[in-house]
Design a protein around this nucleic acid. Structure first.
Lengths: 347, 347
DNA sequence: CTGAAAGCGCTTACAG
DNA sequence: CTGAAAGCGCTTACAG
C-alpha cells in the first residue's frame, strides 16, 4: 500500500510518515515523539518544539486508526435520519446534521450521516457504521418506530434522540419546547383579542404535534375558552401524508398551525377563497423555516433553537461516553417567538 | 477500556468480542476466522458457516480500525461544503451530501461532512479529517477560492469537485450541464415565439452562472437574435449577495433566470408591479428547487440530475483510489427541462 | 484446507 | 526527562 518513491537527487522519500520516522530522524524514541505531539508530560519543552517542527517539515499526519485501536474509540458519531424525512423539501434535519457536525468538530469528533431506509427500519437492521465500530455513539434525528427504538437501546454505545421522544423509558432526548412555544404564541393571539382560535395539525401523527396541541389547549384553558372540536383540524393522515385542510363552517379568527409549511398552505388556501390574512383572520406557524418568509404577509412563528439543541445533544453524548450510566431523560430547549405580520388584533 | 463483566451464573462475558475469541471458542486460528468472515478462499464451506453462526451468537462486530491500519484506508470520504453555502435557505448542497452518502454506502464507504469555514478557506487550512487520516479522499461541493483549490490539489488523496470548476488544470469535476440546459430552455422560449429574452444573473459571480449565460447566448446566436446588453440583468453583486433586480425600460417578453430562487423573486416583483406571468411575460428558472413549485404559476425550469452526479462523482473517486494517476477532467451530466406553467407562446 | 509469524502506527504502563 | 516492551485487532504473505 504505502509506496516509496525516489525523490529529487535519488533520495528515498517515504510517502507515509510515521512517528517512528520522526523519531529516527532525531535520534529519539517514538514514545517521546508521541508524548511531544500530544503535549503530554515527560519531554522537555525544547525537544517538544523540535519534534513538532520536524513533524511539520516531514509532512507528518496523525493516524487516527492506530489510536482508535488502542483506545477503542473512533472519534466519530453516527447521525441517523430516517429516509422519509429527507425529501427535497425537508431540509430541517439536514440543517440539524450540519449544526451537529460543527459542534462535534469542536470536540475533535466527526459526524457520519446514516440515512435509515424504511426497509432497514422495518427489519430492525442497525447501521453498518455500528457493526463496523465506525462510531462511538448515535444521535437519532426525528421520529422512528418503537421497535427500532428498542433495538437501538440494546446497543451499549450512548444514544441521544433529537427532536423526538416516546414513552419508552431510559431514553435520553433533546427536544424543542413544543408545548411552551405554542402555549406562548396562543397567549399572544388571545392578548390580541382572539377567542375563536383553531389548531391545525393531526394530533395523532407525531408527539411533537401532540405537544404543540396541548400547549394550545393549555392556553385556552387558562383563558377559560372552551375547546371546540370543530376547531382541531387535520392537516395530514395518521401516516403523515398531507391532506386538504377543511376550514370549519363557523370561521375562526385565528389559526395556530403546527408548522410553517402548513401555515403556508393554509394562507394560500384562504387567500384563494378570498379571505385576507391578517385582515380577515390571523395565522401563526412553528419552526421559523423557509416557509415563514415565503408567505405574504410573512409569518409570525416560533423559532426552534437548533443550535442550542445541537450543542446540548452533543454535550450529553460526550458525557455519556465518559460515564455510560449517566441518564438525562427529556431535556426541553426553549424557542422564541418571531413576530412578523400575520397576526392582527381584534377590537 | 474494554471491561469484562460477570454474566448470568457468574460466567465471564467479554463485552468486546474479537476474531480471536471466536477462534478460541471453535479451536481454530484467528486467520481462519478472518478468512471465513471475509468469504475468502482457504476455509471449507462448513467451517465458514459454523464460524459465521458463532460470530453472530457472540455478538461479534468487525473492527474497522484494525483493517484500516493494515490497509491504510479508512473507508471514509470527506465531503466539503463551504460555510457560505449552508444558510438555512440553501439546502441544495446538503441534499447532495445526502445522496452522496447513500451512494457511498453501496461501496461500503461512509461520508464525513466538513463545513469549511470562511476563515479556514482564507488561511488555506485543510480539514482536520485530512490531517488525521480519517478519510481516503474528498468531494468538494461548490465553488471555493483558487488558492484553496491549489492547496487541495497538493494532497495525495483523490479529490473530485462537484458542481464547480475553474480553469486550473488537472482538476476532475462533475458538473450539471448548465450550458446545454439553458441553451435548450432558451430554444424552447424561442420556439414559443419569444425574441425579446432577458437573462437574469451576475455572469461574474460564479462559473455556473457564466455557463448558463453562454447557453442562453448560444441559443440567441443560433437564432440570429442580437445580444442586448440591457437584457443581461444582475441579480447579485460579485460576492454573491442578492441585489434588487432592475427590469429594463424596454420590457422583454421572457426572462431566463439563472436559478429558481431568482425566478421566484422576479415573478413576485413583476406581479407586484402589475405584470402577469405568463400572460404578460414568461419566466424560466434553473435547478427545479423548492422555489419552482412555490411560484404562482409554477415554474418551467431545468432539473439538475443530482442523483446521477452523485453516482458519477463517487465512481470517479473509487476509481482514483485504485489508480491515483487516473484523470477525468470535466464531466457534464445532463439535466432535464421540467415543463410547468410559467411560459406562454407569443403570436 | 489450516495456522504461526510479522506488521500496520500508535499509546500505556513501567523501568531507569 | 527518556525509552524498551507489550498490545490494540486485524490481514498478508508464507509454510505446511
Amino acid at each position: 500500500m504505502f509506496g516509496e518513491c525516489t525523490g529529487i537527487g535519488g533520495i528515498i522519500v517515504k510517502s507515509n510518515v510515521t512517528m517512528r520516522d520522526i523519531a529516527d530522524k532525531l535520534g529519539v524514541s517514538s514514545v517521546t515523539v508521541s508524548k511531544a505531539l500530544n503535549d503530554k508530560e515527560g519531554v522537555s519543552d525544547e525537544l517538544k518544539e523540535k519534534i513538532k517542527i520536524v513533524a511539520a517539515d516531514m509532512g507528518y499526519r496523525f493516524n487516527t486508526h492506530a489510536r482508535s485501536m488502542k483506545e477503542g474509540l473512533s472519534y466519530n458519531l453516527g447521525i441517523v435520519i430516517p429516509e422519509r424525512f429527507t425529501g427535497s423539501t425537508q431540509a430541517f434535519y439536514l440543517q440539524f446534521y450540519q449544526l451537529l457536525s460543527k459542534v462535534l468538530d469542536s470536540f475533535h469528533y466527526s459526524g457520519i450521516l446514516h440515512i435509515l431506509s424504511q426497509e432497514d427500519e422495518d427489519q430492525l437492521v442497525l447501521p453498518r457504521i455500528y457493526n463496523e465500530k465506525k462510531v462511538d455513539g448515535f444521535i437519532i434525528l426525528g421520529q422512528i418506530g418503537k421497535e427500532y427504538v428498542k433495538q437501538i437501546q440494546k446497543i451499549e454505545s450512548p444514544v441521544i434522540f433529537l427532536d423526538f421522544y416516546t414513552d419508552q423509558n431510559e431514553i435520553d432526548s433533546v427536544l424543542s419546547d413544543n408545548f411552551y412555544g405554542v402555549y406562548e404564541v396562543t397567549n399572544y393571539l388571545i392578548r390580541n383579542g382572539h377567542r375563536k382560535i383553531a389548531f391545525v395539525g393531526n394530533i395523532h401523527a407525531t408527539s411533537s404535534i401532540q405537544d404543540r396541541f396541548l400547549g394550545y389547549y393549555k392556553s385556552l384553558l387558562e383563558h377559560r375558552i372552551d375547546l371546540n372540536h370543530q376547531y382541531v383540524i387535520k392537516d395530514r393522515d395518521d401516516l403523515g401524508k398531507y391532506i386538504d385542510i377543511d376550514v370549519p363552517q363557523d370561521m375562526p379568527t385565528a389559526f395556530v398551525c403546527n408548522n410553517d409549511e402548513v401555515a403556508y398552505n393554509l394562507i394560500n388556501m384562504l387567500q384563494k377563497s378570498g379571505i385576507s390574512v391578517p385582515d380577515d383572520c390571523s395565522v401563526v406557524g412553528f419552526d421559523n423555516s423557509i416557509y415563514s418568509t415565503l408567505t405574504d404577509p410573512p409569518l409570525t412563528t416560533v423559532e426552534v433553537d437548533m443550535e442550542e439543541m445541537s450543542k446540548v445533544a452533543v454535550k450529553f453524548i460526550m458525557e455519556k461516553l465518559n460515564n455510560p450510566q449517566k441518564k438525562y431523560g427529556r431535556t426541553f430547549i426553549k424557542g422564541n417567538i418571531v413576530f412578523r405580520d400575520s397576526v392582527k388584533p381584534i377590537k
